[in-house]
Every structure is written in C-alpha cells, then in structure tokens.
C-alpha cells in the first residue's frame, strides 16, 4: 500500500509538471530556440572553413547544450516557490525523493531532451561527419540528464536569491567538469577510431550516482531551509 502511494507520487508530479510546461508552450521552447540560435551563430564567428569547424563542432555543441540546460534548470523550482506549492510539497510527511525526481524528469523531458534530439541535426549544419551523429545523440541524452540533475541542486540552493543566473553558473559550472570531459570524449574517441562506449560508460555511471544523490541533496536543502 505504502509502495503504491509512493509510486503515484513520482508519476503524479511528473504528469503535473509536464502538463504545466506543455500548456505554457512558448516558455518551454525557449531553451531549445536559444540552443539552436547560438550554435548556428558559431560559424559566423569562426568562419565557414569547414575543416576547422568540423574539429571544434562537438565541443561547441556540448558547451552550448550545457549553457542551455543550465539556464533552464536554474529556474526549475522558481514557479513553485513563488506560488507557494513548493512549501506545501516540503511540509507533507512524504519523503521528498520521488516528487523531486518526478519534477526533474518532467523538466528533462520538456526542456533538455529536445536539445539533445536537435543536436544531431545542427551537427549536419556545422558540418560534423555523419557517423559521429549517433554518439553525439546518445552522449547528449545522458549528458543533459546529468546537467539537469546537477543544475537542480544549484537551483535549490539559489531559490530565495535574486539575480541568480550568474550565481548559479558560478556554483554549478565546476561541478559540470567531469560530464563535459566524458561527454565530448565520446565523439573524440569515435573520431580517433577507439571504442566510444568507454567514455559513455563513465558518463552513465555519473548519471547513476547523480540520480540517487541529487534528489537526496535537494530534499536536505529544502528541509533544512524550512526549519528556520
């Protein structure tokens, strides 16, 4: 019985947040549009010389995906904080683990996953070699999930502060280092003819650690700030 309630908590928060984000159409598309625009501006600053672009394209796409996810994940709790429903969630006797995981999953599906899916198409524009597109996609699907999980910790820490975008980047960017290293290595491994599943496995293990630790850390942050 208890198990059934908990499962419903995850599903219900996932559904609620998905509905909220799909009803407010334009806002949930903004990170994706930002990502597309900023990646397509890159050739204008780097020149259209295709060999040079080919070499830096994976790095560009990874860094820009990082920025887009960071910007959107920073405000994951803002709406709930402003209308008070975050407080209601915290004072319920339930463990916060599943509701938080549901919220983050919804955020990832509605805002980060579109970025990962669009990236290979942008890769064609830059241009990237066609056989690098699948590693890019797979790496970004796991990578954006990691970005969302870590970015939500930063969002939880900075919820009551104003003008938080730079502060959030400041505290979260150093933590993104392993993800960006392993994520972009997936493509460089493939380009060098090595087995790209090794960095992908490292990336997946980081994801597994984060999926357990991130909701725990966030619920600790919320519970301790509520005591005051």
């Amino acid at each position: 019985m208890i198990f059934a309630t908990k499962e419903n908590l995850f599903i219900s928060y996932l559904k609620r947040d998905l509905v909220v984000s799909f009803r407010g159409k334009s806002a949930s598309l903004n990170p994706l549009i930002f990502f597309v625009m900023i990646v397509l501006l890159m050739p204008l600053s780097l020149g259209s010389y295709s060999l040079a672009l080919q070499k830096v394209a994976p790095g560009i796409i990874w860094i820009m995906a990082l920025l887009s996810v960071l910007l959107s994940a920073g405000s994951i709790f803002d709406e709930d904080y402003n209308d008070g429903s975050l407080e209601q969630m915290i004072i319920t006797p339930n463990l916060l683990f599943l509701p938080l995981l549901g919220k983050m999953t919804a955020h990832w599906i509605s805002k980060s996953l579109p970025i990962a899916i669009t990236a290979p198409f942008l890769g064609l524009f830059l241009p990237m070699p066609e056989n690098a597109l699948i590693p890019l996609l797979v790496g970004l699907i796991i990578g954006t999930a990691c970005f969302t999980l870590l970015g939500s910790i930063g969002a939880a820490l900075t919820v009551p502060t104003k003008d938080k975008s730079f502060l959030l980047a400041l505290i979260i960017l150093p933590l993104y280092v392993p993800i960006i290293i392993f994520g972009s290595s997936v493509i460089y491994y493939m380009a060098d003819g090595m087995n790209w599943r090794y960095p992908l496995a490292a990336l997946s293990s980081i994801f597994c650690i984060l999926v357990v630790l991130s909701p725990l850390a966030i619920s600790g942050i919320f519970r301790s700030s509520m005591i005051e």
Binding site: T158, P160, T161, L167, L170, I171, P174, L175
Partner: peptide, 15 residues
C-alpha cells in the same frame, strides 16, 4: 572555482 562558488553563494543571501 569551487572555492569561489562557496564564497559567493554564502554572501548572496539577505539573511
């Protein structure tokens, strides 16, 4: 960078 994050986060709250 990690130090700078801890430093600046601690000083950006009203309380």
């Amino acid at each position: 960078f990690l130090y700078v994050g801890v430093y600046s986060l601690g000083r950006s709250f009203h309380s």
